[in-house]
Simulated assay, not measured.
Amino acid sequence: MGGFSFGDLFQFEKMVAPAVLKVVYWIGLIGIALYLLFALGLAVTTMGYSPLTGLGMIVGSVIGACFGVLMWRIIIEVYMVLFGIHQRLGEVRDALKGGTTDTPAE
């Protein structure tokens, strides 16, 4: 596939989502990092009232952020695979254009 131009936004010959998904992935990682920083700040504040609860919040926040990064990566990869399948099916369609597309009689 060649480059992407502004005119491609009005035609559905080229997919925009694979390029956009990379940006969305990084935005999601930034969101997870912000969540972790907020949760750690809240945990440190809580440690002033209850040290054990604050420590539990720190551990839970780090584990939650690691799980969030893993799940976010899996979600983005699933979408990338779906768009890859779409691209491959388009290539198969283009390769078969010269051949017969008739279905066999039953």
Rank of each mutant, 00 (worst) to 15 (best):
F6M: 14
A43F: 02
Q11Y: 02
L55K: 05
F67N: 05
A95I: 00
A17G: 00
G54S: 06
G99K: 12
T103V: 10
M57G: 06
G3C: 03
I27M: 14
A43D: 01
G60A: 14
G84F: 02
M71I: 05
F83I: 00
A65V: 01
W26T: 01
A43T: 04
F12K: 13
L9M: 14
F38I: 12
V23W: 06
M57N: 07
I30Y: 07
V20Q: 11
I30G: 13
L96R: 08
L70N: 09
E91P: 00
E106T: 08
L21P: 04
V24K: 12
L37D: 06
G41P: 06
G99L: 07
G56R: 01
L52T: 13
Y79K: 01
E106G: 12
R73H: 08
A65L: 02
A33V: 05
L21G: 04
Q87R: 07
L89F: 01
I75D: 03
V24A: 14
D102P: 00
G56H: 01
K22R: 15
L70I: 05
L96H: 04
F12S: 15
G60F: 05
C66R: 04
L21S: 07
V62M: 09
G7M: 08
G54Q: 09
V69D: 01
G60Y: 03
T46G: 00
M15V: 05
L36Y: 09
R73E: 01
T100P: 03
Y35K: 02
T103A: 10
L52R: 13
W26Q: 13
Q11H: 11
L37C: 11
G7E: 11
T103I: 09
H86V: 10
I75T: 09
A19L: 09
M71Q: 07
A43C: 02
G48Y: 10
L36K: 08
L9T: 04
L40H: 03
D94Q: 13
A105K: 10
G28E: 11
F83P: 03
I63P: 04
A17Q: 08
M15Q: 12
I75L: 08
Y79N: 13
G28K: 09
V44S: 09
V23Y: 07
F67C: 07
L29C: 15
E77G: 03
G99A: 12
G3H: 13
D102T: 15
A43W: 04
F67W: 12
G7Y: 02
G48M: 10
G64K: 02
A105M: 06
A43S: 12
I74M: 08
R73Y: 02
E106F: 13
M80D: 11
L42Q: 14
E13V: 04
G31T: 10
E106Q: 11
L21I: 07
M15W: 03
M47C: 11
G48N: 13
I63L: 15
T46K: 09
K22V: 04
V23M: 11
A65I: 00
L96M: 14
G98E: 14
F6Q: 14
I76N: 07
D8Y: 02
L37S: 13
V16E: 10
